[in-house]
Amino acid sequence: MKLLRWLGASVWTLGLLLGAHQADAQDRLTRSNRFESPQRFAAELRFAFYSPKIDSDPVLGGQKPYANVFGDSARIAVGLEFDWQALRVPYLGTLGLGACVGYTTMSAQAKLVVPRGSQIYSSENTSLDIFPMFGVAVLRADVFPRALGIPFVPYAKVGMGFALWRSYTATGTSMVDGVVAKGMSWGPHMAGGLMLHLNAFDEYTARNLDNMLGINHTYLFIEYYSSDLSGFGKKDMLRVGSNGWAFGLVWEF
């Protein structure tokens, strides 16, 4: 809670220092901006390579239960992010708050407790569902397309990540010695990336999209993220956070 307050205060302070004004007060750096509808929000459809860092937990003493069961390959996490672009920083870009909810799952055939001759694996899957989420401050430096005509927007996100998770088999949520296999993990989240401004490739369609749906800008993005959901080193937290690349689409509206 304190951290969220701190983040909020930081955003506002930064805005004031830079002489920020509301995002819907459009800048007039380029000619096309004059015809744009007001812009206050952004939405992201994201696909991230997700490889939980469960095995990095020191309490496991170097054992790799995750890799042993699910292997080393990353899964794809699908996510939706929604940003409120609260501030427009002149000659830089937008600054706001964002929240994202995602989902990823991993399954593998469960081994039999007692193998049947050469048959080691059962027909049953053991699975881990993760709902990764984060709340972040987002800075998108859209000065490049607006002022310079360069169709790239670098951006950065800093905040807190959360994840709800559950491990289960066909018989339901797993339980060992009375400990149920579901819970929540949290920790710092940060990301940096680059967006490609698609309006530049088809201004006519972009303008129609704005007229019809109020979507000002559409971007492709790629980012590198780090979500360390260890509770800042807590021992009883399943480290379902991940580092990796993400890509997708962004709409500003």
Binding site: K111, V113, V114, S167, G183, D236, L238
Partner: peptide, 18 residues
Amino acid sequence: GAVVSFWKVYRDAGGLAG
């Protein structure tokens, strides 16, 4: 027959979450 779930592997490895 009984199967070994991920959770069993994790807890047997010393994991404390959950």
